[in-house]
Each structure stands twice: as structure tokens, then as C-alpha cells.
């Protein structure tokens, strides 16, 4: 089955990014496919490569990048929401791409299930 995932909150502030990530891992472990992870609202902050968590904490941004690298997961950041919050190509972490809201709608159309994580 094809899954679309929406992440609406930034990393560390809210558990949504952690829940979304763990859900994605479970989706892949179950042998399903992730069509796209779409980052919206403050969720776009998941894509900032300037993030530097303390050594003993999880690196949420790097974890997403690794998910993209290992499994080819499409990580899409909403351009309008990103520009509002200072997320641009120059500070985008590996594996993420910036695109339009149409990518969210397309995920809703193409995926068999769309699951939202937010506040």
C-alpha cells in the first residue's frame, strides 16, 4: 500500500515529527511504500540543515535525510511555508526538496492513505 505522510510541526517543539518518523519506519518495515512525506506549517523546520541538537539527543533532521538516502523517500517542503520561515535551498538538509502545495494534493490523490501528524 502507498502512504502519504504530512508533518505540520517543527522538530523538538512538538512530538509530531518524532511520531511521523517512527510511523514512516514502521510503514517501510511492514513492506509498504511511502509515496511522499510533505512538510507544512512549522513542519518545514524539519528540513533545516542548520539544526544542531545536543550530542546526546536524537538528530531529527539527519534522521529524515537518512530515511531519504536509505529508502528513497521523497521529502517535500512546502515553498510558501518554507520561505515564510527562512527555509531555503541554501540551508536545506540532504534528501529534502522544496516544492509547491500541489505536491500535498498530489500525495492525497496518488497515495492509498494520507496520515497527518501535527498539533
Amino acid at each position: 500500500m502507498k502512504f502519504g505522510i504530512v508533518v505540520n510541526e517543527g522538530p523538538y517543539q512538538h512530538q509530531a515529527s518524532d511520531s511521523a518518523y517512527l510511523f514512516c519506519k514502521a510503514v517501510l518495515e511492514k513492506g509498504h511504500e511511502i509515496f511522499r512525506v510533505f512538510f507544512y506549517h512549522d513542519g518545514v523546520n524539519n528540513a533545516s540543515r542548520l539544526t544542531e541538537p545536543p550530542q546526546d539527543d536524537r538528530n531529527i533532521v539527519a534522521r529524515w535525510s537518512k530515511l531519504a538516502e536509505d529508502h528513497g523517500v521523497d521529502l517535500v517542503v512546502c515553498v510558501a511555508a518554507a520561505l515564510r520561515r527562512g527555509i531555503k535551498e541554501e540551508n536545506l538538509a540532504p534528501g529534502f526538496r522544496i516544492s509547491g502545495l500541489g505536491q500535498l494534493v498530489e500525495a492525497g490523490i496518488q497515495a492509498d492513505r494520507l496520515v497527518t501528524f501535527g498539533d
Binding site: L22, E29, K30, R113
Partner: peptide
């Protein structure tokens, strides 16, 4: 667990947060 979460999503036609 998270695997069960995934199963619940697949078993239902839609989900709403």
C-alpha cells in the same frame, strides 16, 4: 505498537487526525 498503528491505517479506508 507502531506496526499496529500502520495496520490500523491500512485496515480503514480513511483516517483523520
Amino acid at each position: 505498537d507502531y506496526g499496529g498503528f500502520v495496520d490500523l491505517v491500512t485496515q480503514n479506508k480513511t483516517c483523520q487526525s
